[in-house]
Amino acid sequence: MLREIATLHGHPPKVILLKTGNRRTSKLSNLLQEKAQLIFSFIYDKNNNNISCLEIIE
């Protein structure tokens, strides 16, 4: 069923999974800024079209 939905409507949304534990918002903001190029590539690079989850571990 998921395959049919993906065929009709495109790939499911991309997910960015942050495995950081309990952190201050400022620390998460810094981490996301540090990983901005990786996140941009994950979302927009056509070579990553078949990847639905990016896991960032700190």
Rank of each mutant, 00 (worst) to 15 (best):
M1Y: 10
M1I: 05
R3N: 12
R3H: 10
E4V: 08
E4M: 06
I5C: 09
I5S: 06
I5F: 11
A6D: 12
A6E: 14
T7G: 13
T7A: 12
T7Q: 15
L8G: 15
L8M: 15
H9F: 07
H9V: 00
G10H: 03
G10V: 10
H11L: 02
H11P: 10
K14E: 08
V15G: 02
V15N: 10
I16W: 07
L17V: 03
L17W: 08
L18F: 08
T20G: 15
G21K: 05
G21C: 06
G21W: 04
G21Q: 10
G21N: 04
N22A: 09
R23W: 04
R24K: 12
T25C: 04
T25Y: 11
T25G: 07
K27C: 00
L28T: 05
S29M: 08
S29K: 15
L31G: 04
L32W: 05
L32F: 00
E34V: 01
K35I: 01
K35L: 03
K35V: 03
A36C: 07
A36P: 00
Q37S: 10
Q37F: 08
Q37V: 11
Q37P: 01
Q37M: 11
L38F: 02
L38V: 12
I39D: 03
S41W: 04
S41P: 02
S41G: 09
I43W: 06
Y44A: 07
Y44P: 00
D45R: 10
K46I: 09
N47L: 07
N47W: 00
N48G: 09
N48P: 00
N49F: 04
N49L: 10
I51S: 08
I51Q: 12
I51W: 00
I51L: 07
I51D: 08
S52M: 06
S52F: 05
S52Q: 13
L54Y: 01
I56S: 03
I56K: 04
I56A: 08
E58Y: 04
